[in-house]
Design a protein around this nucleic acid. Structure first.
Length: 485
RNA sequence: GGCCCCAUAGUGUAACGGUUAGCACACGACCCUUUCAAGGUCGGGGAACGAGUUCAAAUCUCGUUGGGGUCACCA
């Protein structure tokens, strides 16, 4: 049987990075085994619906480069792929369970349920649904139940949990055993006619012929309920793999309170897709001991569910940044970066028309190993886009000596005679000058840096001068000398 | 609290039951050098604890401790 896996988020606003990791692992698994990846929207909670959430989810998944073989926007043979459009299916399946006596009607109001919980807590009992003391098919009898149904009394359908040991195997965790008496008579069909997650996910996974359920560890405790459902329906149980959670610094489940959790946040912060995916992939799984950088194809090639870790992984922002910086300085298509830089310049109100693609590429080459994000370049390299109007006083104090002004004037004349401003040529010229004056390179190079950039830090001086060009450099020499005098 | 899951440096992780417990990020030092980076070299730092099995345990078993998840007409 060919592999079919799914990512089944609920549209509550945005794609969580933990969700992305789950989606990624599903994707890697599907690709690795030539299977199909399905996107299913679990929108059975009407109270939590968020406008455009599905579009948002899909947009983030697309940004991440995850392609789905079947989804609400590209349906396959197992649709619909949005649960709110499958209500009849769930209703029918709930009826099947009623018929077979594995589920039952219950008419308790929310208040009655609340009171029951309070009552049970006070007597120190588990606050599970008290099947034999509430208003349901068992306590009412079939006739009364039928009467209530005819009267349109609001009802839910509950799962009758058997009093037995429930076992299942998890690919990552091995055998898990829970006793039925620990499990609540879970609601399957809500009074608004919508299914709960438990019913909907089992029915859909079966109907959509899902072979492997790869999801977050938070589902582990409710998996026994799902096993019971599969058994009641007489269906084959898929393989389960419960992924370790992504954690905050304090080891609690990754949450909004302690930083960004939406994929779109990372996108807008300027992380590269490939770097982000690379980083996320290695949270909870690692294919080898001495390699950190993987292409998506390499990830697919080496993916192995059995090697996924059991324990949660802290989302380490510092390493993410390192990885992004690593991608930035190794990416080969600098032309694409230049296009991005151009957009950033526009946002920063720097007149981009003044700088052509070629110039921007050179600037990137000069600064990429000094930043984590491209968008840091404009502020780091202001002097590549306009003449400096501020000069580091401390730097000047340190390197601007009594005779520096004269030296600079003379050097300017020498440089103005060059008709090739290649960095190697400028370098030779400056070295010649240094030797003829009997000084050291650092006696002059820092004053040059001050004049050209206004700052004490930056890229290689001669390379910087080459990119700026002879005219700009000489102009800056000139205006600085004038300013001094 | 009940139930379930988990436990290798600060973080992410590697290692047929036999390794001086490896790698990466972070941290420190040094090298390179024209500043800042990048890069390179070196370094500090780790098996939660206790029993047991075994010639041999990070690795298998049990217990303790610690952490997390989950206990809805939410997913």
């Amino acid at each position: 049987m060919s592999v079919r896996v799914r990512f089944a988020p609920s549209p509550t606003g945005y794609l969580h990075v933990g969700g992305l990791r789950t989606a990624l692992y599903n994707y890697l698994f599907a690709k690795k085994y030539n299977g199909k990846l399905i996107l299913r929207i679990e929108d059975t909670d009407r109270s939590r619906l968020v406008e455009n959430a599905m579009e948002n989810l899909i947009e983030s998944l697309e940004w991440a480069g995850l392609h789905f073989d079947e989804s609400p926007v590209d349906e396959g043979a197992y649709g619909p792929y949005i649960q709110s459009q499958r209500l009849e299916i769930y209703k029918n399946h709930a009826s099947i369970l009623i018929e077979s006596g594995h589920a039952y009607y219950a008419f308790d109001t929310p208040e009655e349920i609340d009171n029951m919980r309070k009552r049970l807590q006070e007597s120190n009992a588990d606050s599970k649904y008290d099947r034999m003391n509430m208003s349901n098919q068992f306590t009412l009898g079939d006739d009364k139940t039928k009467e209530y149904l005819i009267q349109d009394k609001p009802y839910v359908i509950r799962l009758k949990i058997p009093d037995e040991l429930i076992e299942f195997n998890d690919i990552i965790r091995g055998k898990v055993v829970v006793h039925g008496k620990e499990i609540d008579d879970q609601v399957l069909l809500k009074s608004d006619g919508f299914p709960t997650y438990h019913l909907a996910n089992v029915v859909d996974d079966h109907l959509m012929e899902i072979t492997h359920v790869i999801r977050g560890e938070e589902w582990l405790p409710s998996t026994p309920k799902h096993i019971i459902l599969y058994n009641y329906f007489g269906w084959q149980i898929p393989q389960f793999a419960h992924l370790p959670l992504l954690l905050n610094k304090d080891k609690s489940k990754l949450s909004k309170r302690q930083g960004d959790v939406a994929v779109e946040d990372y996108k807008s912060k300027g992380y590269f897709r490939d770097a982000f995916i690379n980083f996320i992939a290695l949270l909870g799984w690692n294919p080898s001991a001495d390699k950190e950088i993987y292409t998506i194809d390499e990830l697919i090639e080496s993916f192995n569910l059995e090697k996924v870790n059991k324990s949660g992984a802290v989302f380490d922002m510092v390493k993410l940044d390192w990885m992004n910086a690593h991608y930035l300085r190794n990416i080969e298509s600098v032309n694409i970066l230049a296009v991005q830089l151009n957009e950033i310049l526009i946002k920063n109100n720097i007149e981009p028309t003044k700088f052509n693609q070629d110039y921007l590429e050179k600037v990137i080459l000069l600064f990429r190993e000094r930043v984590t994000f491209i968008h840091e370049i404009p502020s780091l390299a202001t002097y590549m886009f306009s003449d400096p109007n501020e000069f580091d006083e401390e730097y000047k104090l340190k390197y601007w000596k009594e005779n520096t002004g004269e030296l600079i004037s003379e050097l300017k004349t020498d440089l103005s005679n060059l008709n090739n401003f290649d960095h190697a040529i400028v370098h030779d010229e400056v070295m010649k000058f240094v030797e003829s004056k009997g000084i050291k390179l650092k006696d002059i190079i820092h004053p040059i840096r001050l004049i050209i950039t206004g700052r004490s830090q930056g890229a290689g001086m001669f390379e910087t001068m080459e990119v700026l060009g002879k005219d700009v450099c000489l102009k800056r020499f000139e205006s600085f000398i004038n300013k001094i005098n």
